[in-house]
Nucleic acid binder design. Structure first.
Lengths: 221, 221
DNA sequence: AAGTGGTCTAGACCACGCA
DNA sequence: GCGTGGTCTAGACCACTTC
């Protein structure tokens, strides 16, 4: 394993965070550095990252605690997808079992399969965002799964529904930096969306990585 | 001065960045640590911050370079302010000389004064954003300056104009964390706006700190 | 071979909160 | 007085690029 220590610690710590409630403190930095046999500076680096990703917040002199990962929820039905003006490019496509967290979000069982695809959205020749999408499999029929273009046109099936969104300022994930044509280390805005139908059943979970330099964002007033 | 070393280095480095062009490399970490008589880890911490704030980007094995601070610019006139549905609360008010950077943005001389105010925007009883505003003084007349409420209603004078915006994911500045009712260390989205009149003359420079949990943001398609 | 950024260590001292 | 997070140091090795 060539993974840096702080990445391994991050993975462990994320597991611990998942089992804690919001505002519950994690172990102290010194305790963690002993537990993971790493220097305190390395542990701090991991925590810095988790803070910057919104998982943790610091309470000076007291403890580092788990954040509330609250989401913004629409109360009225909204028009969901109107991306016909975009070009798409499929980067990845697969059918897989969801992990526990995803299964919970999409309200499916662990042993059902979901459709995952990663696509880049292009406008005026430039990649302005990347969507990492998990669809509930039921929504997509057998024929669609075999035809990538049918999946890409899938959004046409769902015109109205409910939208829960969370906006997370993050550093661009290195694996998407190239596709987004953005330098590693660039801060971007990731939008997590949960799309539900008018029957309020979840349809898709989408993480959108926006190239802030290419796509204007506007405050809704 | 109780300022931490990395803050002092940050201030120095920002001056150096201001004099460089986009994509121009800054000095190496080792060179900077000698120059500022600090350890390399401290210099790295400063650079990490400047990277996370979008001023710099890293080029592994080569150099750390100055970012393009590009902004999104409206080409057609836009309706600027329609915040009558908000409550305001004035947090700070002053008349002062602009620093060099601000003078350049607002196209005023260093010895002119600008009006600064910080206000919180409230909707449904919750603070959803804080505006840090610098107005060109000319726009505000003597009477207005004396009357805080007149300044607050100032936006009514300017209904249309041009808007330049930049979206910056940042960690909440500690001095605003309390007013925004957000934990220190929370990542938020700051919007920098330069508002100009229909004559394209700058009117105001605004930094808006959005409480992401309170205010929905929507992608413009 | 020299220089760069990336990672990592094993210490240190500080200010602050709490019991 | 003890534990916490915040800052800081002076080294080290690595992978990589450039010359």
């Amino acid at each position: 394993m060539g993974k840096p220590v702080y990445i391994k610690i991050k993975e462990e710590l994320l597991k611990e965070i998942a089992e804690k409630k919001p505002h519950e403190p994690i172990e102290s930095e010194r305790a963690l550095s002993m537990k993971y046999k790493a220097s305190r500076m390395t542990v701090r680096k991991t925590i810095d990252i988790l803070v910057s990703e919104g998982y943790l917040y610091r309470n000076k002199n007291i403890a580092t605690c788990v954040s509330e990962r609250s989401i913004v929820e629409s109360k009225q039905p909204v028009d969901i997808i109107s991306d016909d003006i975009y070009d798409h490019k499929m980067l990845y496509f697969n059918v897989k079992s969801p992990d526990r967290e995803l299964a919970k979000i999409l309200e499916v069982d662990d042993d059902e399969v979901v459709v995952r695809m990663v696509k880049s959205n292009i406008r005026e020749g430039k990649v302005h965002s990347i969507d990492d999408i998990y669809y509930v499999r039921d929504i997509v029929n057998e024929t669609d799964i075999k035809s990538v273009s049918a999946i890409l046109g899938f959004s046409k099936h769902v015109k109205q529904g409910f939208l829960k969104q969370r906006f997370v300022p993050i550093i661009i994930p290195p694996n998407y930096a190239n596709a987004l044509n953005v330098k590693i280390g660039t801060p971007i805005i990731m939008v997590e969306s949960i799309i539900s139908g008018i029957d309020k059943k979840p349809i898709a979970f989408i993480k959108t990585y926006n190239n802030t330099n290419e796509k204007p964002i506007e405050i809704v007033t």
